[in-house]
């Protein structure tokens, strides 16, 4: 569903992502981890078509992102760390706007259950300024899910959420994966990855240090020990330093 080959992203002389390759199949949740500045956000933004990669190939479904960005973007949703909402649009108007952009038919029939599921149906006529941080996050998710994306990218999805919000976000990610979406998320919160992700990719200085299922990556850095936590694996993999 997501296929990345030799992805490279540079900012001037600085290489943020170097020759990165991996794939995510439907139903899989890949966790991107790494120290600050490892290239997680740059990777996600390249995959979502927000910034152009300098080289490499990204496929969303069977569509090459660079060749047909519109076709690729129809299949994906991207959720930044902070919900980016339009201050002057109510919850309902956000959904109407996104429905027009994606050409979603019967969006009102789809939006109702989605708002119910995300527990913001009673806020339908409120502006983002009147919503709590968690509610804004839910609205951003409703907007992203309205066109039933097959590929979903989350950048630090738990930022600013309260414990209940964190629980619901984790449930939501798992549910989308069970429904067949391919999901990539970046996070510093290793316990989230342990609970939600089927696969993990450790980055450092833009390069892939490890990639595989949680068990495979654990085995790679366990050095014969059993029951090694992901935190310990992360520290061993990254050498206990920032990028």
């Amino acid at each position: 569903m997501i296929s990345v080959e030799a992805l490279t992203k540079r900012y001037g002389d600085f290489t943020a992502v170097r020759e990165l390759s991996f794939a995510v199949q439907p139903g899989e949740v890949l966790g991107l981890v790494g120290p600050n500045g490892a290239g997680k956000t740059s990777t996600l933004r390249c995959l979502a078509g927000i910034i152009p990669a300098n080289s490499g190939t990204v496929r969303i479904g069977n569509v090459v992102l660079a060749d047909d960005p519109v076709g690729a973007k129809r299949q994906l949703a991207f959720f930044p760390d902070e919900p980016r909402l339009f201050d002057y649009l109510t919850v309902r108007q956000h959904l109407a706007f996104v429905a027009r952009i994606y050409g979603v038919t019967n969006h009102e029939e789809l939006a109702g259950p989605l708002l119910e599921e995300l527990e913001i149906a009673d806020k339908a006529d409120q502006l983002p300024g009147e919503l709590s941080r968690g509610m804004k996050q839910k609205l951003a998710i409703a907007c992203g899910l309205l066109h039933a994306p097959k590929v979903i990218f989350f950048d630090e999805p738990l930022t600013g959420l309260d414990p209940l919000g964190i629980r619901r976000m984790k449930d939501s990610i798992r549910r989308r994966a069970q429904e067949g979406a391919a999901i990539v998320l970046s996070s510093h919160l290793l316990h989230l990855l342990e609970e939600v992700c089927s696969h993990v990719l450790i980055l450092k200085k833009g390069e892939k240090l490890a990639h595989g299922t949680l068990g495979e990556v654990a085995a790679q850095f366990a050095q014969g020990e059993t029951n090694v936590s992901l935190e310990e694996i992360f520290i061993r993999a990254t050498g206990n330093t920032e990028s």
Binding site: G49, I50, V70, F78
Partner: peptide, 8 residues
């Protein structure tokens, strides 16, 4: 960022 994820 969000505008660039739209299929346009």
């Amino acid at each position: 960022d969000i505008l660039k994820t739209y299929p346009l």
